[in-house]
Write a protein that binds this DNA or RNA. Structure first.
Lengths: 142, 142
DNA sequence: ATAAATTAAATTGTGTACAATCTAATTGTT
DNA sequence: AACAATTAGATTGTACACAATTTAATTTAT
């Protein structure tokens, strides 16, 4: 019985995960360039398209990023006019992110991106759903 | 028939992929800290443990990184004494990365890392294999 | 044989990512 | 009330990640 080499790149789950994540993000890049958004800015906007208003902490929990990453991203999105940053009046520690009209409008330009990216992923509907479920199962453990 | 909102974070494959990749790498961090390696340095060393010698271009193709990322990583690994960087005598454009004795020795300290990380991923053997296959299927398309 | 094209790394510039620390606001405790 | 503890963001420092450009070596085409 051949012993599998645990320290080979190909035998670890983490590596295809890491590679796959990067490669898919690379597929988004040309589409996001047209909207002048980076991938991180895009997932931030997706949350705002859904929620309209959210504080930095809750946003960070949703997209797995801390204030060290988010602060510059949000300042950038503010400078582009897609969001506003205001302290909550009832608790000045909280920074409330609000989507602007311009930010809302961006949604129309973005709406066919998921479909376009989906097309260049070589999986059947069923496989994609299976992958989706497995990934969320792994995430659930954390 | 309810139409699925394609622009919701939860309905896109890319997001759980991105989140999962980061969360798994986070699991590695404390273990890699003991070896004074970052994740990128670790996957680089994994290739070298396997190959002993490789040029930057081939290495980059294996781990999906370009010279812009690899040059500083390799200089760092060289400064730690794990690798050597030398131009190929037959074609001076090529930089040959060679593992050192010290780099070889690091392998022993690393050998139980995959198993430890595997334990904190909430998947059965069968599910992990399924996930593995789906990820490589996606990567295969590129 | 030499100029043009190609190739491999390195460099530069922008944008994450995240640990650690800092600051200010709020809450809990005595 | 007053001080300690907690909390939310911002800041700092290190390390990727990658596009675009540059440099030097090699190959191709004339």
């Amino acid at each position: 019985m051949e012993k599998l080499d645990g320290l080979k790149l190909e035998n670890q789950l983490c590596f295809p995960l890491y590679a796959c994540s990067k490669e898919i993000i690379r597929r988004y890049k040309p589409l996001l360039n047209e909207l002048d958004l980076t991938y991180t800015q895009y997932i931030t906007m997706m949350v705002l398209w859904d929620k309209k208003e959210i504080n930095v902490k809750t946003l960070g929990e949703k997209i797995f990023l801390d204030s060290g990453t988010l602060t510059p991203v949000l300042k950038k999105l503010e400078s582009k006019g897609y969001i506003e940053r205001n302290r909550a009046s009832d608790d000045e520690r909280n920074l409330i992110i609000t989507i602007t009209k311009k930010g809302e409008n961006l949604r129309n330009k973005a709406k066919n991106i998921p479909q376009k990216v989906g097309k260049c992923v070589n999986l059947s509907e069923k496989e994609a759903m299976e992958l989706y479920k497995l990934l969320y199962k792994v995430l659930g453990k954390f």
